[in-house]
Design a protein around this nucleic acid. Sequence first.
DNA 1: CTTATAATTCCTGTTTACGTTAATTAACAA
DNA 2: TTGTTAATTAACGTAAACAGGAATTATAAG
Lengths: 108, 108
Amino acid sequence: MSYLPDTFAALGNTTRFAIVERLLNEGELPAGEFLDIGDVSPPAISRHFKVLREAGIVVQRVDKQRRMYSVRPEVVRGINVWAMSYRQFWQGSLDRLALALEKERGKI
Amino acid sequence: MSYLPDTFAALGNTTRFAIVERLLNEGELPAGEFLDIGDVSPPAISRHFKVLREAGIVVQRVDKQRRMYSVRPEVVRGINVWAMSYRQFWQGSLDRLALALEKERGKI
DNA sequence: CTTATAATTCCTGTTTACGTTAATTAACAA
DNA sequence: TTGTTAATTAACGTAAACAGGAATTATAAG
């Protein structure tokens, strides 16, 4: 069985997706850094991190009173592996699109 | 704004994920072909396809009484583009893992 | 015209998701 | 000790997700 549906379910919430993107761009950050993300309360942030943790998307590191969060690289890589496994499918359509554009260009 | 959270939300259901994987592997199929996927009723299948359509993941083609469904290649490609945009992040961790394994091998 | 097939929509009930305020835990600082 | 900061858990309410059976629509076949 694949773990991907659980991963996607966790990323299928705009607040959590924004959290993950920010962690990906800025690296490890404490939970408190996300209070400005789309007006959510501290309890809401905390529960979103719990969902992300339980889906295996982030890991927590305790530093004094703060909980530092970071994204597990394998997760993003896993998504990439999945999408790449269907590369022939989507690459093919890209090639056909490029070909069609070439032909259009020829007509003009 | 990114459409990815909606895409992930739609794929974050095991039944819908199974539907999409099957369409990716076997190509265009009628809705009725999915009645064996984890004992779901025709209405349930129909509603899952509606979610997938509204998320832009699949397209419908009418053929007599049948509704033929197929995956939009741009969607899978879009997921790939997103994951690839963080390649440095997950590739880096892979390299460190490989290096660690090399060192371990050296010790043995 | 009548029946069968394919899929959907309607109606309804149950579960899950998500947010808020209040209370709690843990660490730090005066 | 007392107060402050960081984050979580508890309790509660509302909205959305999801499922099933019944009814509906559209096409095909006898």
